[in-house]
Amino acid sequence: MLFFSAEISAQTKDISGKIIASGDVVGIHVINKTASKFTITNNQGEFVIPVKLNDTLIISGVQYVPKEILISDIIMQTRAVTINLEDNVNLLDEVVVGKILTGSLMTDIENSDVKRELNFYDLGIPGYTGPKKTQSERRLYEATSGGGLVPLNPLINWISGRTKRLKEQIEREELELAITEAKAKFSKLIFEDDTFSANMQNEYFYFCGDDPEFIDISDLGIDIKTLEFLKSKLEAFKIHLEND
């Protein structure tokens, strides 16, 4: 029985939560302090986060009083929790001793004794880690995002065709980057037995880029598959030159 009980307490489950508050409930930070997991609420104040029995959740929003929730047996069984937040009323001449939760996610993570460095992929928010967005990607994000009951900015950009043009621009930039990386990594291996000029080698790689399969294989990041594909396209390229 002790073994069974320990096994149950060690199980991780995704629970669904809902924030109830008098104001805006989107973008509220939900931190599993025990497991170093993070997420934020959607427009309806809903969230999903992995937890174990006796984990501690910290709910933090700039306009609300921070709250801690202990994951109980009932929460684990129902896989659901509803959390009511109180408005945060700022008081003058207030002295705070010790660690506080501010509503700033970075500050709250530091103050909550979480040891692991914050990985914003845990939040489901793109762009916080990894490579920076290109200018075209930032423009596309701006063109497809907006607030209000009926977001006008995405609608106008879609009707005008700007969103489509930005997506095509990003695809061209990604293809150009993949071609450049392939040339740098595989040129010596591909042309070790051929005497193609530099211009002809460039033409070959753009010939490969015209194949829709090229970008899919490049995205896999498996060098052997990429090399096999490029060698097969080399034979096709030679046939193409002969036909020309």
Rank of each mutant, 00 (worst) to 15 (best):
V97R: 11
V97T: 11
G98R: 12
G98A: 04
G98F: 06
K99P: 09
I100Q: 11
I100C: 06
L101E: 12
T102Y: 03
T102E: 02
T102P: 08
G103A: 09
G103F: 03
G103W: 06
G103H: 11
T107K: 14
T107H: 08
T107W: 03
D108Q: 09
I109S: 05
I109F: 05
E110C: 04
E110K: 15
E110M: 12
E110R: 14
N111I: 05
N111F: 07
S112G: 10
D113T: 10
D113H: 13
V114P: 06
V114F: 01
V114Q: 13
R116G: 00
R116N: 06
E117K: 14
L118K: 15
L118H: 13
F120H: 12
F120M: 13
Y121F: 10
L123G: 12
L123N: 10
I125W: 06
I125L: 13
P126V: 02
P126R: 13
G127T: 04
G127S: 10
G127L: 08
Y128L: 13
Y128V: 03
T129Y: 00
T129E: 01
G130R: 00
T134G: 11
T134V: 06
Q135A: 09
Q135K: 15
Q135T: 11
S136W: 05
R138I: 13
R138F: 06
R138A: 05
R139E: 15
L140W: 09
Y141I: 11
G146K: 11
G147E: 06
G148D: 11
L149Q: 08
V150A: 10
V150T: 11
L152N: 04
N153G: 07
P154Y: 06
P154R: 09
P154L: 04
I156Y: 05
N157I: 10
S160C: 05
S160Q: 12
R162A: 02
R162M: 01
R162F: 00
R165D: 14
R165N: 15
R165Q: 15
L166M: 13
K167P: 05
Q169F: 07
I170T: 15
I170A: 11
I170S: 14
E171I: 01
E173T: 02
E174F: 00
E174H: 08
E174P: 01
L175Y: 01
L175P: 00
E176W: 01
E176T: 06
L177F: 02
L177K: 13
A178Y: 02
I179K: 03
I179V: 08
T180E: 12
E181I: 01
K183P: 00
S187K: 09
K188C: 00
K188R: 11
L189R: 14
L189V: 03
F191C: 02
